[in-house]
């Protein structure tokens, strides 16, 4: 087998392993990537992340549900923990952006937030995770402290998403350029518009895609 064919086979094993939530297969393939001297960052992006993206697609099609996504995430982390220490320094320094993320006060649901956070980590963002039930002003403080380009707010319940509108106002007052993404079950494009956010996404992979677009547009402006 040629080197390229072997590499493609391993990338496919990583992606399939994530998709079928086979932690051991993913770990084995990740170790093989390192043993054969293939690029760790490429294996993360074109192997692990690709598998998660496919899982996100299946979620949108109602083939997969939250339990399946959580098991995919476990498999992804099994590979990420092996590969990440071997990402070349120059790739590591090429931060895709700085993100502040958290679930808003009054809400303790963090599964969606954690999945989005994982995709950001996979792609090489610098992620500042504030956790769940986060007081509104904490988002503003953290954005200022880290100079984050992107703030991501999560809420699972209609009864807790209201705080988002105020956080968005508070952040915009201090820093009008920062991009704000909101997500969670009650969030629709309509809510995004009403609250003055910049976007939302219905899966973790789409959240990453949106985030990459937002950061790129910011950097173009800058």
């Amino acid at each position: 087998m040629t080197n390229d064919a072997k590499k493609d086979e391993l990338l496919k094993k990583l992606a399939d392993g994530v998709l079928k939530f086979e932690e051991e297969e993913v770990a084995t393939a990740a170790n093989e990537v390192l043993a054969l001297g293939f690029d760790a960052y490429e294996a993360i992006m074109n192997g692990l992340a690709k598998g998660m993206e496919e899982a996100g697609r299946l979620y949108e099609e109602e083939e997969y549900f939250v339990p399946e996504l959580l098991l995919c995430a476990d498999a992804l982390y099994a590979g990420l923990n092996i590969l990440r220490p071997h990402v070349k320094i120059e790739d590591r320094q090429k931060s895709r952006g700085v993100v502040v993320i958290g679930t808003v006060q009054g809400d303790v649901h963090d599964i969606g937030k954690n999945l989005v956070k994982m995709m950001f980590e996979v792609a090489g963002f610098e992620v500042h995770d504030l956790g769940k039930d986060v007081p509104l002003e904490k988002f503003v403080e953290e954005q200022l402290k880290t100079n984050a380009e992107l703030v991501c707010l999560s809420a699972m319940m209609t009864t807790s998403m209201l705080g988002m509108e105020r956080i968005i106002k508070m952040i915009r007052e201090k820093n009008p350029e920062v991009k704000i993404m909101i997500g969670g079950a009650p969030i629709t494009q309509e809510v995004v518009k009403k609250f003055g956010a910049d976007g939302t996404a219905n899966s973790a992979s789409n959240a990453l895609r949106e985030a990459l677009k937002m950061v790129a547009s910011l950097r173009k402006m800058g």
């Binding site: 339990p67 399946e68 959580l70 098991l71 476990d74 649901h109 599964i111 954690n114």
Partner: peptide, 10 residues
């Protein structure tokens, strides 16, 4: 919740 959902499958 994530534990509950995972054991719902497993």
């Amino acid at each position: 919740l994530s534990d509950l959902l995972k054991i719902s499958l497993k």
